[in-house]
Design a protein around this nucleic acid. Structure first.
Length: 825
RNA sequence: GCCCUGGUGGCGGAAUCGGUAGACGCGUCGGACUUAAAAUCCGGUUGGAGUUAAAUCCAGUGCCAGUUCAAGUCUGGCCCAGGGCACCA
């Protein structure tokens, strides 16, 4: 074994051998239980960044640990390779998105291999390849047949910078998720997936996801935004129309003093009197001009104009005016709101501004409020509400809605904030939506046997203001599958999030050319046992994937209802306190780390300083420290190589004291490391335990000038166990050491070490002696001592005698094997 | 405004059930080796008091109360930071 550690040499050597041997191929059939470890697949942007390194290292260590513990592990990788950056790069460099993407994939694949990741590359999926997107299209057609994909004209989010529409989930604070450009509303005919059909079950099943963090689950729950209330209908005085409103506060219905409809409300013109027409039109025109951000700003002063018409409150017979105001949103509920200024802060502000009456109908009997200065929104008891007076307001919600139901002017209603998922994009680099338009037959799905609908190659990427795909001369015109007449192809492509909503299923059967995946295989491997990725997908990808899984289950394509059993959302990689980014210039190139220190150092460091879920601050000194540690490990092994035997050996039951202590430390390390990995993947403490064990072996070894047979056996046991324990992290170093010491096969095929519970503790205990709860003494004691003996031992301590002299011992608490607390007065 | 997560030395962070607060590392200070440096090895490093040196004592896990023999850990009430949602009726 070489004296010095040359990571670059070792790493290249073993990567080549593993690849040639197919070391990480996963058989579909095995006696072992399955384990599916998955990282969120990357967008092939060009080069790996440290966030990727962190993500993939975490999953790789999990996969290797599970494999050593007897599982048949599926650990695949692929590419989320459709999307706008490829198209932008093509426009900028005159290249073509496909070549740009292929080159990036090739480079990043090389980097992933340099990191020593244990992927089964035979299962690689690339979403922009026809053998994959054929099935994305096929799944779209199945959704279409089920009525879950539909086209409709709607107010949609438009990003001028990206030249395409966006899903609600892709609008962050009124801006485009990708380019930060302000998002506008446009009326366009677009394709949607009916995720709202699954709103309730997507919400309910969050409870099943015990392996997910509460942060992600609440984010999803908030996004789905369930609320329970009622639809109440109000007759218009001036004509025979009715205005329905959605409310969660039917208990306040007797306090209505006006009613608001959104400026875009469908019947608004019919609800406007001729005298008010001009003012209303002006108000609506102004609302149209405002951006979403302006309109949704909560600190803006509320404005509105009266329509001139009135409604009747069926509960009181009172007549109240109709207004339009932009604080009512057309897309939520019915687009109309009953206003109760006394019990809603927004209505209150509005009523104060326009001098509308405030009528109190809920009161806290202990502290009645007259609602002169602010709305009372707390629970209470009804007043001024006829037969409901004195009723608790929660009870009244039901009772009043029931009265509306009985009277035919209302109903119970559950409302969700979640909207249908807009999936069409006016871009080239995506999976074409497989439909054609025929003048005679209308929208026609492309027959399944004609899939895939291939992306055309004859396109001009330099066009502005329209999708490059529309410049193709070969793509647009086709024949109608129904009548055989001339027809036009859909030129929109699918949101990349459609492609990524099912890729984890494809890994189970990546080469299937008859189906997206075989049912038995997908049922065998799924759900994913451990999914690892960034928190930024808490809503987008994770919600869409859950929806896809449920929809596919309802189509009978698979038999489980949640795709990801356990989810680990890893923190960001920071440098100097902020997220690594090109614009800030605080990035670290993984290639440089591989070159200067090797992949094992990179892997060790990225796991070492913070628990996986927390943000990780990159420091050059930290990398250096990890590199030094691996050198220290290497020296420990190489300088003792001549005494180490990889052949099986037995440790006698009665060892010399120092050898017994050493063996115990090894067992303690096995137990601690195993538990730390099993319990939430606390790799940072795993690594501190590697260091403790290495330090302990050095100490033990440093006290011996010559080694007898027993010493050699203990040394072999300690070193070989260390190598096994470190093998999931320092994958190359441990393989080289294992090989040099004469170990059989690959270190990555050996069994994970087991500990003996009797040995995984020190030979004696340290008895902590407290007086009134404060530590006063520590005594080495035999573990076998009884409670009484421990008590006697503590009371005999010189310190205790001194400190209790002249005082009364009130009582003594003994915690077996640990502690004695003496309470004195 | 509502929801989630977190708050421990100079820094990253440890601390199964309530039972030795600060593991391990970074940084730093001192020492060994060396002509010198690097590398390596050894030791100190929460604050304060104390001592020639020690021993030793006191305080201490965001703040204020509480439960307990015992609280970083449990309960109640706050404060701060990060993230999510938000004129959603």
């Amino acid at each position: 074994m070489k004296d010095a550690y040359f990571p670059q040499e070792i790493e290249k050597k073993w990567q080549k051998i593993w690849e040639e041997k197919g070391a990480f191929k996963t058989p579909d059939t095995s006696d072992k239980p399955k384990y599916y470890a998955l990282s969120m697949f990357p967008y092939p942007s060009g080069k790996l960044h440290m966030g990727h390194v962190r993500n993939y290292t975490i999953t790789d260590v999990i996969a290797r640990f599970k494999k050593m513990n007897g599982y048949n592990v599926l650990h695949p990788m692929g590419w989320d390779s459709f999307g706008l950056p490829a198209e932008n790069a093509a426009m900028k460099h005159g290249a073509n998105p496909e070549n740009w993407t292929d080159e990036n994939i090739a480079y990043m694949t090389k980097q992933l291999k340099m990191l020593g990741l244990s992927y089964d590359w035979d299962r690689e999926v690339t979403t922009c390849k026809p053998d994959y997107y054929k099935w994305t299209q096929w799944l779209f057609l199945q959704l279409y047949k089920k009525g879950l994909a539909y086209k409709k004209e709607a107010a949609v989010n438009w990003c001028e910078e990206c030249g395409t529409v966006l899903a609600n989930e892709q609008v962050i604070d009124g801006k485009c998720w990708r380019c930060d450009h302000i998002v506008e509303k446009k009326y366009l005919s677009q394709w949607f997936l009916k995720i709202t059909d699954y709103a309730e079950v997507l919400l309910e099943d969050l409870d099943k996801l015990t392996g997910w963090g509460d942060n992600v689950k609440t984010m999803q729950a908030n996004w789905i935004g369930k609320s329970e209330g009622a639809i109440l209908k109000f007759k218009v005085v001036e004509n025979d129309l009715e205005v329905p409103v959605y409310t969660t506060r039917p208990d306040t219905v007797h306090g209505i003093t006006y009613l608001v409809v959104a400026p875009e409300y469908k019947d608004i013109e019919k609800l406007t009197t001729s005298e008010n027409k001009e003012a209303v039109e002006a108000y609506r025109a102004n609302a149209r001009k405002m951006t979403e951000i302006e309109r949704l700003s909560t600190d803006r002063v509320k404005t509105g104009v009266p329509l001139g018409t009135h409604c009747i409150n069926p509960f009181t017979g009172e007549k109240f005016p109709l207004w339009t105001a932009d604080y009512a949103l057309v897309e939520y509920g019915t687009g109309a709101v009953m206003a109760v200024p006394a019990h809603d802060t927004r209505d209150f502000d509005f009523a104060k501004k326009y001098n509308l009456p405030v009528k109190v109908v809920i009161q806290n009997p202990e502290k009645p409020s007259d609602c002169k200065t602010e709305a009372y929104t707390e629970p209470g008891v009804l007043i001024n509400s006829n037969e409901f007076d004195g009723m608790d307001n929660e009870k009244a919600k039901k009772a009043i809605t029931q009265k509306a139901v009985d009277g035919g002017f209302g109903e119970f209603k559950t409302q969700y904030r979640l909207r249908d998922w807009l999936v069409s994009r006016q871009r080239y680099w995506g999976a074409p939506i497989p439909v054609v338009y025929c003048d005679k037959c209308g929208i026609q799905p492309v027959p399944e046997e004609q899939l895939p609908v291939l992306l055309p190659k004859d396109v001009d990427f330099s066009v502005v203001g329209k999708s490059p795909i529309t410049t193709s001369k070969t793509f647009l015109n086709t024949t109608c599958p129904c009548c055989g007449g001339p027809a036009k192809r859909e030129t929109d492509t699918m949101d990349t999030f459609v492609c990524s909503s099912w890729y984890y299923l494809r890994y189970s059967d990546a080469k299937n050319d008859k189906m997206p995946f075989a049912k038995d295989k997908v049922n065998k491997w799924l759900p994913v046992d451990q999914y690892v990725g960034g928190i930024e997908h808490a809503i987008l990808h994770l919600l869409y994937s859950r929806f896809f899984t449920k929809a596919l289950r309802d189509m009978g394509l698979l038999d489980f209802d949640e795709p990801f059993k356990n989810l680990l959302t890893q923190g960001m990689v920071l440098k100097d306190g902020s997220k690594m980014s090109k614009s800030k210039g605080n990035t670290v190139d993984p290639d440089e780390i591989f070159e200067n220190y090797g992949a094992d150092t990179a892997r060790l460091f990225i796991l070492s300083d913070s628990p996986p879920a927390r943000d990780f601050d990159w420091s050059d000194a930290g990398v250096e420290g990890c590199y030094k540690f691996l050198n220290r490990v290497w020296r420990l092994i190489s300088s003792n190589a001549e005494y180490i035997s990889a052949s099986p050996f037995t440790l006698h039951s009665s060892l010399k004291k120092d050898n017994d202590d050493m063996v115990r430390l090894v067992h303690i390390a096995i137990k601690g490391i195993t538990n730390d990995i099993s319990n939430d993947f606390q790799f940072n403490t795993v690594i501190s335990k590697y260091r403790e064990l290495v330090n302990a072996i050095y100490d033990w070894r440093g006290k011996k000038s010559e080694l007898d047979d027993e010493d050699k056996a203990v040394l072999s046991f300690a070193i070989l166990t260390l190598i096994k324990l470190m093998s999931p992290v320092a994958v190359h170093l441990t393989e080289e050491a294992w090989h040099d010491l004469g170990g059989e096969g690959s270190i990555h095929d050996v069994e994970w070490p087991k500990w003996d519970e009797n040995l995984a503790k020190a030979s004696s205990i340290t008895l902590v002696v407290q007086i009134n709860g404060k530590v006063k003494d520590k005594i080495e004691a035999d573990e076998a001592l009884s409670e009484d003996e421990l008590k006697a031992l503590a009371l005999n301590s010189e310190k205790v005698k001194e400190l209790t002299a002249g005082k009364t011992i009130v009582k003594t608490i003994v915690v077996p094997k640990k502690l004695v607390n003496i309470v004195v007065k």
